[in-house]
Design a protein around this nucleic acid. Sequence first.
RNA 1: GCCGGUGUAGCUCAGACUGGUAGAGCGAAUCCUUCGUAAGGAUUAGGUCGAGGGUUCAAAUCCCUCCAUCGGCUCCA
Length: 656
Amino acid sequence: MSDATTTGEEVVVTLPDDSELRVERGTTVEGVAYEIGSGLGRATIAGVLDGDLVDKVTPIESDSRIEIVTEDGGTNEYRRVLRHSAAHVFAQALGRLYPDARLAIGPPTDEGFYYDIANVDLDGDDLAEIEAEAYEIIDADLAIERFERPREEAISKYEREDNPYKLDVLHTEAADAESVSFYEQAEFEDLCQGPHVSSTGEIGGFALLQTSAAYWRGDEANDSLTRVYGTAFESEGELEEYLERRRKAEERDHRRIGREMDLFSIPDHAPGCPHYHPDGMTVRRELEGYVREKNDELGYKEVWTPALNKAELWKPTGHYDTFTAEGEMFNWDQDDTEYGLKPMNCANHASIYASDRRSYRELPIRFSEFGTVFRNEQSGELSGLLRVRGMTQDDGHAFVRPDQLQGEIVDALGVIDDIYGSMDLAVNYVLETKGDNAVGGDDIWEEATDALRDALGAGDFEYEVNAGEAAFYGPKIGINAVDAIGREWTIGTVQVDFNIPERLDLTYVNEDNIEQRPVMIHRALLGSFERFMGVAIEHFNGKFPLWLAPEQIRVLPVSDGNVEYAEAVAAELENSDLRVDVERRSWTVGKKIRQGHEDRVPYMLIVGDDEEESETVSVRDRAEREEGGKGVDLEDFRAHVEAERAEKRTEPDFLA
RNA sequence: GCCGGUGUAGCUCAGACUGGUAGAGCGAAUCCUUCGUAAGGAUUAGGUCGAGGGUUCAAAUCCCUCCAUCGGCUCCA
């Protein structure tokens, strides 16, 4: 790509616009910026060298791609630098208030920064004090300076300060370095590779958000440290916006909305096993119906298999070893035999496949099941509907000939795209490849991975690759839904599996009457109903599309005298299988409306003497639009909502 | 599983630090009001203070154990 080549003491750097520049070997990032222009040079705070964020004094030793990070533009790189500096400001403030605290590491993250610390116990009030001290430091606009110190000197410094974590860093990452870099601002200094902004005053908005625990180097055999999370922005305003977004996300918490809307509960007697209440079950039944429709389209035949099986069912497939080793399977001895609750449905479906002799003419053979599985997730991992121990997957397994493989995957991806699109969920596809716990040979994995990659390509789906993250039995396309406020959730999945057919000796007979190995495709469209409901609740903020809403229409009589007419209206709409309630409480109209909005009902029909006389209704929707006055013909309204329901529109639009 | 927080009426929360007969709002029930597009009024009922143990004359409150839950960590479909 380059016609310029390295000669002797020169290296070639490639700029973001693909232009190239020759500079002397050892020139710093900042030096390159000055080569480009003195304005850029002065504005430089850091660089990105071949994708890695580095300090501006980093020398360039070989040909590389370079990007100059400056403070304008509010780029992600700049924010990372700013937040790294904010982590230092936190550490400085902490040191002033808690001189005994020991610093471990404090990197920037996507949303802010954290600093792991030891020897200190902090609660919410303490964070507020530290935050106030941090603002002192920011207001003082202290210059942030980089300097080098011989590694030996750094070691003795941290031995004096009794800081095992910094010493650990010096003895591992920096073991071969002659000297190491420090950053200092006033009385504070920290072992750090940088980069940093030039002074503390560049931080406009600073907030400490929460504390938690984390192990040193993420290993539970190590010390447990206190981790303080915070964030920082160029300005107070941007910080406020961020905090507001966080508050909004909290308000959408599906556990809270689930309680408010009486959708589900997870009582103490069944940790990780949600109970669906009538309205939650209504939502689930609608989702089930939708999936059944799609399964019919795809040619999946519904089956049902039991939760309780002998443990030996899962031994040949490798599930038993994998799940039992992790303590994830519920199994126990009963009358001298080991039984278990199924952690996946595939072994049962494979047994149905194997129950008959299969011809190549029959393939693909496809089974679907709303299969309830149980996995003993660690107690600390359980989280509402999003991480559970008992869940029902909209599972499906297709047994195909190798030549049918790609088409089958493409079809599944197409349906998934369809379903998610219908709910305004964007989808990110993630290709997950062979990991350490994988069973089966490399060649088989490669073949399966290629099949998935080809299908993604054939369907023109963009995807990212997550190396080493696949399930143990085969590579996978993870379906990550992106919700209304930009969060990503792993829900559906498509996996190719050559291993189970091999291990269970599944066969079909080809045209030459020779036994062949089918390929197995595992796929879930929504993933599990539990997680999908949790995501849908947060995505829609409880304001389900009409087709999903437990209560679709509420009829509000203006006074008690109109109840009878309200009931007649409701009965009329119920003839169209609409879910309609009548508000019979003797409340004022205003209060009934308020309650209707709080309950997130898509449509309210308000009926008083005027409507009763003209045999109409007055319509108000969830978005506070209203159509009163002359009134609305009930048949017009019925026709509209029937269409709205059938087309699965996401917002009530009769009044749009 | 690990670290830290939390658990009081159906819901949201006060009371706990400093031990002395358990409170509010919403919701519910009853009554009054019959109301026109986001909260009409009154009365009443409702709590083994997560469970068990301990300290004490006395425990929601202090101590211990367990359970559940929340935030992370780790793990992961």
